[in-house]
Nucleic acid binder design. Structure first.
Lengths: 262, 262
DNA sequence: CGGGGATTTGACACATATCAAGAGCGGTGG
DNA sequence: CCACCGCTCTTGATATGTGTCAAATCCCCG
C-alpha cells in the first residue's frame, strides 16, 4: 500500500529530526522548522526575510499525522489552532441543516486549514484527509502575538486570508456562470497550477478524490464529471486513467473556458 | 427623486459636522467618528470596549459620497484603503477574461468593502453603488499600525474577514446544491436577517437591485427569478410589488429550503 | 405625455440530473 | 497466485429544471 509507505517515510524523517535535535546539530536544517521548510515559498513564511521567517519557528510546536479518511476537525469543534499542511491532501465539507453536504475545498501542502473558524471560534466545516497526511499545528493565540512583533507576518496572514476569499470567489464564478465542461476544465487547470507552484508536475498528477467529491465541489453529479472526463479524453485534451491525469493540451483546455454551448 | 434628497440630507449633515468640529463641540457626538457611529455594532468597532473603539477615530480621515451607478473601485485598481459602508447599498461584480461577469456580493451599511484586495494590492472586482451612498475610507496601512496597539482590533478584523469567507461559503453551497426556489428563499431570508441586524424591518424592505442582478448573484436567469417571485407570491409566502418585498410567512420560506422537487 | 428599461409570462429547447446496468480496479483471503 | 467482493467509474436511456427566445405590460423618469 503506497500510502502506508509514505507514512513510514515520514515517521523515519521525524525520528531523524528528533535525533538531530538531540545532538544539537544545526537547527536551521531541521525539516519541521518554518525557516527550513521546503514549503516556505507557498506557506506562511512566504515573502518574509529569512530572519523574520526564523521567528516563526517559535510558532510550531507540534506536528500531527492524519491518516486517510481521518477527520482533522469537525464543524462545531472549538477553534484553537490553524493547521499548515506539511504533506498530504485534504477536503473540506460543509453541510446545511437538512443534511445536504458539499465539498467546499481541496487542500494541498503549504495551505492553511481552519481559517473558516477565525470569526466564530467554532469550526464551520469538516476537514478530512484524503490520503495519509501531516500538518503543522499553529496555535492561533500565538500567531496573533507574533504578528505584533514579526514584521510582515500580519501582512502575509492577510494575504492568505485574502487568497482564500479570492479562491472561493473563483468558485462562485464557476458555480454561478459556467457549464459542466468549463467547470471541469477550470478544476484541472487550477490543480495543475497549484501543483506547479509546489514543484510538482503541472501536466501529470494523481487525483486524490473520487468523481463524486469532484462533482460535489463543482456542483455536478458524478456521472456528469465522468462524462466530461471521457469527452476531454476523446478530444485529446487529457489522458485519463482512473485517477491518473495527464494534461495533453493545456491550451485546448483553456479554450474550453468561455466557449459557447458545445 | 428620493435618492437625491438623501444625498442632500447627508451633505447638510456633513456641513453640520464640520461646523461642530470647528467650534470645538463635544467630539464624541460627531457622526463620522467610529465611537459614536450608529453602525458601531455591526462595523469594525463591534465587540470592542468604548475606549478602544475611541482609538478607531484616528482611523477615519475621509468620507466619500458615491452616487448611484458610480464605481467605488474597479478590478485592477491599486489597493490602499478599505471602505466601511456608512449608508447606501453596493454590489460587487467579478468578471473572467471572456467577458462574462457575475454579481458576487451585495453590501449594506456596516460592511467592509475592498477586502478582496488585501492579498494582491490590486482590487479584484468592481464595486458599484446601487443607490446614493457614503463610505468611510480606512487607510489599510493605518489599520495595520493600529492593530498592533488597539486590543481587539486585529481580532475583530479577522472576524470580519472570516465572516466574509463564511458568507461566500454559504453562497457556494447555494450555487452548488440548491434549486432555484431554494436559492431565492435563502436570498430573501439572508437580506431579511441583515436588515434586522441593522435595525431595519426584517419583513418589509426594498430591493436595491434588478432581477437580473439577483439572478446573476444566484446563478439564475432573470426570468427564473421573476417566476420564483411569482410563485412565492401565489403561495402566500411573500408579497411582491416591484422591488418592494414583504415577507408574509418566514417559516414557509424557510420550509422551501431543503424541500424536494416542488 | 412619451420613451426606454425592467418585469412578467408563455412556448419551447437543451444541459444536466436521474435511474439503471455493467465494467474495471484494488484489496482480501483462500 | 487466483478468485472473489465491494467500491468506483463508465455509459446509456430518459426525465426534468432551468435557459432561451419572444412578446406584452408596467413603471419610472425625463
Amino acid at each position: 500500500m503506497q500510502a502506508t509507505a509514505t507514512v513510514r517515510a515520514i515517521e523515519t524523517g521525524l525520528r531523524a529530526t528528533i535525533a538531530i535535535r538531540d545532538i544539537g546539530s544545526n537547527v536551521s536544517r531541521l525539516p519541521n522548522l518554518c525557516s527550513s521548510c521546503g514549503l516556505r515559498e507557498v506557506c506562511l513564511p512566504c515573502g518574509m526575510r529569512s530572519e523574520e521567517a526564523g521567528k516563526l519557528d517559535e510558532l510550531i510546536y507540534t506536528r500531527v499525522r492524519v491518516k486517510r479518511g481521518q477527520v482533522l476537525y469537525r464543524a462545531g469543534d472549538a477553534f484553537a489552532s490553524l493547521y499548515a499542511i506539511r504533506s498530504g491532501f485534504f477536503k473540506s465539507v460543509s453541510s446545511v441543516e437538512d443534511g445536504r453536504e458539499q465539498v467546499t475545498g481541496f487542500h494541498m501542502p503549504g495551505e492553511l486549514l481552519g481559517i473558516d473558524a477565525l470569526g466564530t471560534d467554532i469550526h464551520t466545516r469538516d476537514t478530512i484527509a484524503l490520503e495519509d497526511s501531516e500538518v503543522c499545528v499553529i496555535p492561533y493565540a500565538r500567531l496573533v502575538e507574533l504578528s505584533a512583533s514579526v514584521e510582515g507576518l500580519q501582512r502575509q496572514f492577510h494575504r492568505i486570508l485574502s487568497r482564500e476569499i479570492a479562491g472561493e470567489h473563483g468558485i462562485m464564478m464557476l458555480l454561478g456562470t459556467m457549464r459542466a465542461e468549463e467547470r471541469l476544465a477550470m478544476f484541472l487547470l487550477n490543480l495543475s497550477q497549484r501543483f506547479l507552484a509546489r514543484g510538482y508536475s503541472a501536466t501529470e498528477f494523481v487525483l486524490r478524490m473520487t468523481r463524486d467529491e469532484i462533482g460535489s465541489y463543482l456542483g455536478l453529479k458524478l456521472e456528469t464529471v465522468s462524462r466530461m472526463f471521457s469527452r476531454f479524453q476523446a478530444e485529446g485534451l487529457v489522458e485519463v486513467s482512473n485517477r491518473h491525469i495527464r494534461i495533453l493540451d493545456a491550451t485546448g483546455l483553456k479554450g474550453c473556458l468561455g466557449r459557447a454551448t458545445h
